[in-house]
């Protein structure tokens, strides 16, 4: 068993290949400049590297250490890199970091679930939605450890936490029939049409007759207002509940 000593340390295969690719890219750039003055130059089409390594597995990650002089019994790993054109890169590579997509790293999930998701190739909410659209049974492919509904709830909760409701102003007004209503302005109130907001004023249900992201209008009657201090609880969706005291 080889152990770390001096500069010889364990490395991830991904980091090793990243380093190879970066170096190959540098080579291509240098050769492209060289080709301006020298007509006959060569560029790397394929590369193969046979490594003598000792692997180690900590139960989650496999790491490797390079065999040193005199060390016997190393395993062989063969890495082959082929160059592809930029068109192929575009065709085979997913664009990451889109504003509309959310990385699973930004979602408040436990590390074990994140690790399981990565193992099945899910790195963003968009990936997850694609699996759901194709009717893939995530519970089955993750050995029963990931339930889509639970996960979807956690994602929605996390996304909602990133866009919490903000109340800017509350005012009393009368509609055209002289019925009083409470007008609440702010942002991120009603974001999902599947969940109409529910208002409870002083423990009595109130009718929310208009709602959008920036406005809520709630009809009032004499039963709702019991004094100067009024407790309003707004359930905007399953992940956002606002409680406030209104002085009239």
């Amino acid at each position: 068993m080889a152990t770390e000593n001096g500069d010889n340390k364990y490395w991830n295969l991904e980091d090793f290949v990243d380093s190879l690719v970066v170096e190959l890219d540098k080579t291509r750039e240098t050769l492209a400049v060289k080709a301006i003055n020298k007509q006959l130059t060569y560029t790397v089409k394929e590369m193969a590297i046979d490594l003598n390594i000792f692997p180690t597995f900590d139960g989650d990650v496999i790491k490797f250490i390079t065999a040193q002089p005199g060390q016997q019994g190393a395993s062989k790993v063969n890495i082959q890199l082929g160059s592809i054109t930029d068109q192929q890169v575009r065709a085979t590579t997913k664009i990451t970091g889109l504003k509309s997509d959310t990385s699973i790293d930004k979602i408040d999930l436990d590390p074990k679930t994140k690790s399981k998701l990565r193992k099945i190739g899910v790195t963003s909410v968009d990936d997850l939605n694609q699996l759901e659209n194709r009717k893939v049974d995530i519970q089955h492919v993750s050995d029963g450890e990931i339930d889509f509904k639970t996960l979807a709830n956690q994602i929605q909760k996390s996304k909602r936490n990133q866009n919490p409701p903000v109340v800017r102003a509350v005012s009393l007004a009368l509609d055209e029939n002289n019925q009083p209503y409470l007008h609440i302005t702010g942002q991120n109130f009603s974001l999902n049409p599947d969940y109409p907001p529910v208002a409870v004023l002083n423990n009595k249900l109130a009718d929310v007759f208009h709602s959008n992201s920036g406005n809520l209008k709630i009809f009032l009657n004499k039963d709702h207002l019991t004094g100067n201090e009024n407790e309003l609880i707004l359930t905007l969706d399953p992940y956002a509940i606002v409680k406030m005291n209104i002085k009239i």
Binding site: T41, M47, P69, A74
Partner: peptide, 21 residues
């Protein structure tokens, strides 16, 4: 008797053309 650990590298290179292919 104390041999270095030799790994192997094989490079296939082709003539470079301006379009990068």
């Amino acid at each position: 008797s104390f041999r270095p650990s030799y790994h192997n590298i094989t490079l296939t290179a082709e003539k470079y053309s301006e379009d990068g292919n």
